[in-house]
Design a protein around this nucleic acid. Sequence first.
DNA 1: GTCTATATCAAGATAGAC
DNA 2: GTCTATCTTGATATAGAC
Lengths: 188, 188
Amino acid sequence: MENRKKQIIDLAIKLVQQKGYVGFSYDDISKQLGVTKASIHYHFEKKEDLGVAITERIAKSFLQNFLLIKKDASVSVEEKLKKFIQVQAERFACTEICPISSLQTDFNSLPDVVQKKIEEVSRLELSIMKDLIAEAQTKGILNDTDDIHSVAVTILSSIKGALLYRRVLGDDILTGVISQINLILRKS
Amino acid sequence: MENRKKQIIDLAIKLVQQKGYVGFSYDDISKQLGVTKASIHYHFEKKEDLGVAITERIAKSFLQNFLLIKKDASVSVEEKLKKFIQVQAERFACTEICPISSLQTDFNSLPDVVQKKIEEVSRLELSIMKDLIAEAQTKGILNDTDDIHSVAVTILSSIKGALLYRRVLGDDILTGVISQINLILRKS
DNA sequence: GTCTATATCAAGATAGAC
DNA sequence: GTCTATCTTGATATAGAC
């Protein structure tokens, strides 16, 4: 069944967030799903294939998330931006980091195809953040001195970095970053 | 010779930056140093021991770096802060990330002793950043609405996150973050 | 589609010679 | 302090039965 395939991918993403691409194994997956390693290999012959599936799912759910917020006409553009940032920051459990960050860290150990996928997803993430900021920018939410690229990369980078620190030092880090981001967006 | 020991630690840190703690092996080290694996095991019986040595060296060089800047009476506190941030961001090659970030990502796979060390180093890093900002704060470099903790964690997180993106997308990311940090610090 | 069994390989680690 | 040799374990991967 194709449901098992989905189940494997979902679990694999969790494992990437917890242990990294290099750190997780087919054994981890098979044990948690109560099947054998060979069974996982049936669905994804090589780890590389699973790696590609992982990145594709990440991109897909990221994009869905964005479109959902983007199309919602009931909230202002400022609210959309803040909501998107909130969701990005809070969709993970306290000891989980962003799967994209995890794969960026393991970048040099990834198979070529997965490297290319990660590059794509990273670009996608950045362009989506820029799109939201550009829309809010027309409403004068930013300083004239701020430029869209700098603000976008800083918001993304600081959230991702904060998730790394949070894993080790606890929740204070992320809340500090969120409140600072809100300051950046508030003054105009 | 104790020089070999130092050589191993230095190389191990580079490898952590490039491939992560889980991803690098005694084989990598031995090959690059032109000795056997057994020889590396003589200096660091277990990988765990090397892990501890790595984190201790990271903390030491970080602290030295800080004290060097801190004690320098020839520059203003604002300049000290900016210089420290600059150094943090630019001490690595373009495809290398911060070794602390790398170890934070692999946190769940680290031996207990190394986990504790990483926690220490992370705290140290944060407290040093706060110290510098607090000193600059007295000079009115920050808004009243900014608080030291938020600014400190945002600066650190955004630099670390930017290094992850830079590895994949190139230098634009880091320069964008640096210029945005300077904006945060400039308005008062 | 899932299983058992097994091949292959790399990694961490140890024993003992030089 | 470095070597050769070897052990153990865990991981990716494949073959073939059910």
